[in-house]
Design a protein around this nucleic acid. Structure first.
Length: 317
DNA sequence: AAACACTACAACCGCATATAA
DNA sequence: CTTATATGCGGTTGTAGTGTT
């Protein structure tokens, strides 16, 4: 049959860790390692704790390479960029930030960064509203997204649908915000779709046929999604709508200098540059494909090689 | 000084997936 | 192949510290 029970949760200590417990766990792991068995570890280490709790304590707090607080501007941008692209995949985001844990990044986002994003998004919308009215009053000049707004971090925060948790009151996670003013988006703005089978938010109403065609062609042009699925974007819920690419930080994250819409997966890059960045691109691409099959479909489209088996998405921090 | 509100973050909970028996 | 457990992860909660009234 199966394995032995994890622990008796009624008899183990819970709540905050004491310095003594920390020291016991730290010294044990440093001397013996985890042994790949967190369940047995607390007993061996002389701790009256659940193995799960020990693992969490070690990974999120006691590891020697952990950084606490003091997030840099660059880290903020990386978090925003990745959240914008892949949603609340904290372990993936944290893996891009040396010394940071998923729990830490998650807390940082929920307590600080999200509020900043909401404020900036609100400011951006006000600006768009203002620009729209200026345009209607015949002042000429096309409304520019974010015009007059400092192009700083999180200015484009519009979390992906799948990142939402259906908390209707949460402006930062408002699906509608993504589509709040599509007419004000520059016509050339590319549309990025990503796979997420667990999209919880409702899809926006389908655009008129002409716009659908235009959207499909923009998808084909930039090839953000595997072509077979990109063509079916408007009919397959798994491709959870469109996400405006208005993000200046992914290229920095990926180490790509001149970023063009569509370059996330290497399309449009010079061959040499594409080769140089293949690893990073594949890592990110891996985040978009739920299965090896999808990755193969992507590979069959002759864009990039399929993500490695043990890709970014499967690695822990 | 006390009461209340807010913030930050550690820890817990539950679910999905991997894996051992 | 089936079942039960281990592990990893994201969401949520609890609480200590700090600021405000």
């Amino acid at each position: 049959m199966g394995r032995a029970p994890c622990c008796d949760k009624t008899s183990v200590k819970r709540g905050p860790w004491s310095p003594e417990e920390d020291e016991l766990l730290r010294s044990y792991v440093q001397n013996h390692g985890t042994g790949g068995n967190w369940i047995a570890l607390p007993h061996k280490a002389g701790l009256n704790r659940c193995g799960k709790s020990c693992r969490l304590r070690w990974l999120n707090y006691l590891r020697p390479d952990i950084k606490h607080g003091g997030y840099t501007e660059q880290e903020d941008r990386i978090i925003c960029s990745l959240y914008n692209s892949i949603g609340s995949r904290w372990s993936i985001i944290a893996s891009k930030l040396p010394g940071r844990t998923d729990n830490d990044v998650k807390n940082y986002w929920n307590t600080k960064l999200k509020k900043k994003a909401v404020a900036m998004h609100s400011q951006q919308q006000q600006q768009e509203y203002y620009n729209h009215h200026q345009q209607q009053q015949g002042s000429g000049g096309r409304a520019r997204r974010g015009a007059g707004t400092p192009r700083s971090q999180c200015a484009s925060m519009q979390p992906s649908p799948a990142s939402t948790t259906a908390s209707a009151g949460d402006a930062a996670c408002s699906f509608g915000a993504m589509y709040s003013s599509p007419s004000t988006l520059p016509q050339a703005t590319a549309v990025l779709t990503r796979y997420d089978g667990a999209a919880t938010a409702p899809l926006p109403p389908p655009p008129p046929p002409q716009q659908q065609q235009q959207q499909a062609s923009s998808l084909a042009e930039f090839s953000h999604a595997p072509p077979q699925q990109a063509a079916a974007t408007t009919t397959i819920n798994s491709w959870a709508g469109g996400l405006a690419i208005d993000d200046m930080f992914l290229p920095e994250l990926l180490g790509v200098g001149d970023f063009l819409p569509g370059d996330i997966f290497g399309v449009g890059l010079a061959p040499q540059l594409q080769a140089d960045r293949a690893s990073s691109l594949q890592e990110l691409a891996a985040c978009y494909f739920p299965s090896a099959q999808a990755a193969e479909m992507w590979a069959a489209a002759d864009h990039v090689k399929p993500p490695p088996q043990a890709g970014l998405c499967h690695s822990l921090t």
